[in-house]
């Protein structure tokens, strides 16, 4: 599993106009590297959901993307309020998004479950008042 390249992006807080820019850039890179279409789609959806979570809930953060020959590892770190109950947050339909966020079409409570669904390995760690880290691994041959 040799590493092809690493990309790092800073994701701004509450910047909905720019939200998704990091995911779009990663999608373009994966396309240029000729990964399978289905793999690129899974990585794009997982990263976009994580990026949006950082924008909405995390107060922004950093996305670090490690691209290997046969997989991609997406590490999303924020210094936001943290998640008190991860099990609850992982349930479909559970969301703490405000009404104004919901008006933008977010807040369906599907973000974290969607990330898990697209991933081959998904780790989430969170500490209240410290922040949240997601490590998403997607294999190109799965």
């Amino acid at each position: 599993m040799s590493q092809v390249l690493t990309q790092k992006y800073v994701v701004g807080a509450d910047d909905f106009a720019a939200a998704g820019a990091a995911s779009a850039a990663v999608k373009k890179t994966l396309k240029q590297l000729n990964f399978p279409v289905d793999f690129i789609r899974r990585a794009s959806i997982a990263m976009y959901e994580g990026e949006i979570n950082m924008v909405i809930h995390g107060g922004g953060g950093v996305a670090s993307v490690e691209i290997y020959e046969d997989c991609v590892k997406i590490i999303l770190t924020d210094k936001g309020p943290g998640i008190p109950d991860i099990e609850q947050a992982m349930q479909e339909g559970y969301s703490t998004a405000t009404d104004s966020i919901r008006e933008l079409g977010f807040g369906a409570g599907m973000g974290l479950p969607n990330i898990k669904k697209q991933s081959d390995d998904f780790e989430i760690t969170s500490e209240v008042d410290k922040g949240t880290t997601l490590i998403i691994t997607i294999n190109s041959n799965s």
Partner: peptide, 13 residues
């Protein structure tokens, strides 16, 4: 949905 996020979602998916 007619926000910029609509475009992003369509492209990602």
């Amino acid at each position: 949905q007619t926000s910029l996020n609509m475009v992003a979602v369509a492209v990602m998916a």
